Simulated assay, not measured.
Amino acid sequence: MTYAFPPGGLPDQSVRPEGTAVFTPAYAVLPAVTQRDIVTSFLPGWTGTRAWILARPLSGFAETFAQYAVEIAPGGGSDAPEPDSMAQTVILVASGALRLTIKGQGHDMTPGGYAYIPPGADWTLRNSGDAACQLHLVRKRYAPAPGIDAPDAFVTSDHAVAPTPMPDCNGVWSTTRFVDPADLRHDMHVNIVTFQPGGRIPFAETHVMEHGLYVLQGTADYLLNTDWVPVGPGDFMWLRAFCPQACIATGTEPFRYLLYKDVNRHPVL
């Protein structure tokens, strides 16, 4: 298993600037080649850290979440990483070593490590290794529901959770679900979706959930609205509600992506 991350750096002056980035009313594609040093931000309360902010709530587009790729230098991190007391966070470690502490309990995380941090939790994180720690981070403001408690924090790993095969697909399409879909405490899911070469979504999904999709490994042709777009490691897709979508995995290795979606709540009227 591999976990792609922005390449950083800067192409040399011989490279022509035409690219494959797309922003439409229905979807956006940020290819890995666009995720360079000059589009990073520093974060208040974090040290030795830079972040690619790949998605943020945007009126008239996708409005529920923010998604980052975060790179932390050795010894860097934060003792106050979250400025919004109602925000919940998911972390997936792409490379390096991370020491995550939630409510006083420490967790050592390595590539594939996954954590869910509920709103209002006291948490810190620190690069505990000798090389840069790279991680994917998704934030969403929690939507309380009557009679339902907020979720508990947990830390696990991509390697520790068995993928669930999707029905009627002979095992070529599976989803690693870190949260039980029937657990109504959770109002977002951040899963890893895997297609074996040739596997596909066999219809154009069209639904209310917004998506962030970060390609972790492999290649595919992805249907976005009416356009087929080739994607590969490090490419990010950002979909508003009801954007039709499907994919066909290409190449010789599994096609895997980190998938955000909002779930389990009435629409706000």
Score class of each variant (00 low, 15 high):
Asp158Ser: 13
Pro167His: 08
Ala220Tyr: 05
Ala162Val: 15
Arg185Pro: 00
Thr176His: 12
Val193His: 05
Asp158Ile: 07
Glu205Tyr: 02
Asp152Cys: 03
Arg200Cys: 13
Met166Ala: 13
Thr176Pro: 10
Val193Lys: 01
Gly212Gln: 01
Gly171Met: 11
Gly218Met: 11
Leu184Ala: 10
Val193Asp: 12
Asp187Met: 03
Pro151Cys: 06
Glu205Lys: 01
Met209Ile: 05
Gln196Asn: 11
Trp173Gly: 09
His211Met: 10
Ala204Pro: 07
Leu216Val: 12
Val215Pro: 08
Asn191Ala: 09
Phe195Leu: 15
Met209Tyr: 06
Pro197Ala: 12
Asp187Glu: 06
His189Ser: 00
Glu205His: 05
His186Ile: 03
Val215His: 06
Cys169Asn: 15
Ser157Asp: 15
Ala182Ser: 10
Thr176Ala: 13
Ala204Leu: 07
Ser174Lys: 14
Ser174Gly: 12
Ala220Asn: 08
Thr156Leu: 11
Pro163Tyr: 09
Ile201Arg: 03
Asn191Gln: 02
Ala153Phe: 05
Asp180Phe: 00
Thr176Val: 15
Phe178Gln: 04
Asp168Ser: 12
Val215Met: 08
Ala182Thr: 10
Phe203Lys: 02
Asp149Arg: 04
Pro181Ser: 00
Pro202Lys: 07
Arg185Gly: 01
Gln217Asn: 11
Gly218His: 06
His207Arg: 03
Pro165Phe: 14
Val179Ser: 00
Thr194Tyr: 03
Ala204Met: 06
Thr194Glu: 12
Pro167Thr: 13
Thr194Met: 06
Leu213Ser: 04
Pro151Leu: 03
Phe178Asp: 05
Val215Ala: 08
His189Val: 02
Asp221Tyr: 01
Ala204Thr: 07
Ala160Asn: 14
Val172Ile: 15
His159Cys: 14
Leu213Ile: 05
Ser174Glu: 15
Asp149Phe: 02
Ala160His: 14
Val215Leu: 12
Cys169His: 12
Asp183Ser: 01
Val190Leu: 04
Leu184Cys: 07
Cys169Gln: 14
Val190Gln: 02
Val172Ala: 14
Pro202Ser: 11
Val161Ile: 15
Ala220Gln: 08
Pro151Arg: 01
Met188Gln: 09
Met209Thr: 08
Gln217Tyr: 06
Val208Cys: 05
Asp158Phe: 12
Cys169Leu: 13
Asp149His: 04
His159Pro: 09
Pro181Tyr: 00
Val208Ser: 11
Ala160Val: 14
Pro151Lys: 02
Met188Gly: 02
Ala220Met: 05
His186Ala: 04
Val155Pro: 09
Asn170Arg: 10
Asp158Arg: 09
Leu213Thr: 03
Phe195Gln: 11
Gln196Glu: 14
Val208Met: 11
Thr164Lys: 09
Glu210Pro: 03
